[in-house]
Design a protein around this nucleic acid. Structure first.
Lengths: 212, 212, 212, 212
DNA sequence: GATGAATGAGGATTCATTCAT
DNA sequence: GATGAATGAATCCTCATTCAT
């Protein structure tokens, strides 16, 4: 086949995959995870069921593609932020902003990807690595912050988990509760919380005590 | 029917429901969410499949019962803590400890209840109210803390969400990652984090800035 | 459950399996191997497709049941003949008669079982053991015949294969061509052939020669 | 179209058919009967799936072509042997040798053609005629042998079936069991068996008796 | 004539729910 | 009330065949 024809074919293929991806996302959004059947995806994409299998060998592969397609831009942005020469706090803020904004944009998919265990089961490895990657990234930035003396010394990994948790739940909140909470406010709150907690000046943490 | 007979019947009924509940939890734990079939529950409970339908009109009702039954003790403990006369920080710590410990104990069910969207979809209302209740409770305690001058002034509801997020992700971490992180350490970390954040003494929060 | 109830249940179950077996045989006979779909079996049996799965875990199990059910009586009769105290030639004759008669009776199934590689693939182990068993049985009888001095000395196993082949092809012929050849004649022919071959008295076998 | 162009076209067409035939044989050999999909044949042939349909109206036609192409050389050789002026026993030996050797060479196709009922179903008429032809050919030779006084008088057709059966099962054995039995030995055994059977000198065939 | 994407009927299997006993 | 067999819609996947380019 000529080079040109080949390139054209590749293009068409990737457009189809894209279209199927979008159909899958739509179905996901409308019916929830367990509602993602190949039939519905096909119908939504306006193609025959069998055609899906010309582009994805099976359902799992389709879901993985959806995952990848959704997560990749996030990952890229985050990497760019990570490797910039901003101070740690600005990096954190930027990353968290990225997350919130993406979620705002792709609500349905994110719900599916991050909250549905059926999917998470299938995408176990993808998910685990995704989360691990995120936490690791945060940990790197936190380590930088500690070095910059803007964060207290401590285990960057543990801190990263805590921050990740806070941010993630806020995402959850965004996803499930609707967002009456404006994004900028949200970001500021999370960062503030992360930095200073809620204790009044001079207050001391209680000793964590064994239950009675 | 005589009163006595009626009471006896109620008793039998509730024992059956209890038994079915336990079977459901076992199946949940062993097979995961998608593995919860009425067949398996019936077999585990040692009753005929049809009998399940004498106690629950359908599968959803059974799952709701499981949810309720699982969450109720938590709710009760939390209420008791809420209404005790401990200082706010102790209350928070106690509640969070309750959560972590419960999760440690009932891993399988909690995964199902809190992480599986298939379930969460079905149990949407239960879930929403559960979360709302938890956040509200935290908010109440935080308000108390503000009044006690141990927490900075602020919107208790927003703070509650942030804390909830931190705690919840730690639960997630417990649930999915296994718990190499010892519970006491975890609790102290969360509370510490909640109170003081990670900023070094004297460091200032960055102004949250619009993305260029 | 009472012993009685249990026995009754077993009875019903085995009657159902029997009915499904017969339906499968009918479908097999009418549509050939590749025509044996669970749908058709269910329809022929007059039950819902799902019901088949109450009696057989999957299609393979059903086919294996058909195989077993078909072959077992044959095996039993053959064993009885084998262990009787008849002279070798009579045993052979009796066994071959058994085969021909069974085949005459169960045409469709035998075609499926012995001639269809799709089935033979699935039932590989059953088949192999079946054939091996048959040949072994023949070999045993032939060894007996050699001892009785009615058969020439030689490798009983090789002789058994040859006899098996002759008989089997005659079965094939019966199965596919219809049987204008009366059974008694057939049996006599096979036995005669097996004993004396076709050479005229005094004729000598040619030396098997390499192809020029 | 000019005569030349037409002839050229015919040539191209038959080369394509040949190529497809070979691809089909390869697929057959590698994947077994049920693995012969038009996709695989096309891929193996290095042409597009649709192109197959320019040369064969449908799958059946392709399989028939495969059958024909495989069997034809056999038929030709057999005809040549039949019409040679060898004595009957040598003709038989030569034909049987041809069969065994072909089978040894084209294992996969033969398994498909002779043992798989899915195929045999499709190729019923081809098969029947093939077998009929083979038997007829054997019968002709046997008639010759009777005339030559090397075979006992009898129905040549019945004898032919018996011989065919013996030979065919040996082919089966070759095909499924692998061939620890060397071909020359096999041929000699079959011919010997065919000529003299297994009876010891002086032994008499039992009277074929009615079952009790 | 070649291509290969699109099609859609069909096949095996699962499972919530019903209902006769 | 208990039982568990029966049901059939739903689900994933396959593959011969068609047809626009």
């Amino acid at each position: 086949m000529s080079d040109l024809a080949e390139r054209r074919k590749d293009l068409v293929t990737s457009m189809m995959k894209e279209a199927i991806y979008e159909a899958a996302v739509d179905v996901l959004t409308e019916y929830g995870t367990n509602g993602v059947t190949m039939d519905r995806v096909a119908e939504q994409a306006g193609v025959a069921k069998g055609s899906l299998y010309n582009y994805f060998p099976n359902k799992l592969a389709l879901l993985q593609f959806v995952h990848e397609k959704t997560v990749e831009p996030l990952r890229e942005k985050a990497q760019r932020i990570l490797h910039s020469d901003l101070p740690a706090t600005h990096k954190l803020e930027a990353i968290i902003r990225t997350w919130f904004e993406s979620i705002d944009e792709h609500r349905g998919v994110f719900v599916f990807l991050f909250m549905d265990l059926t999917a998470r089961e299938l995408l176990k490895s993808e998910e685990a690595s995704g989360r691990a990657e995120a936490v690791e990234m945060l940990a790197t930035i936190i380590a930088q912050g500690i070095e910059e003396n803007v964060f207290r010394p401590g285990d960057p990994n543990r801190m990263a988990w805590l921050l990740y948790g806070t941010a993630k739940e806020m995402c959850d909140l965004q996803l499930t509760a609707g967002n009456e909470w404006p994004i900028e406010q949200l970001i500021r709150d999370v960062i503030d919380f992360f930095l200073h907690g809620v204790a009044a000046a001079g207050a001391r943490a209680p000793r964590a005590t064994k239950r009675h």
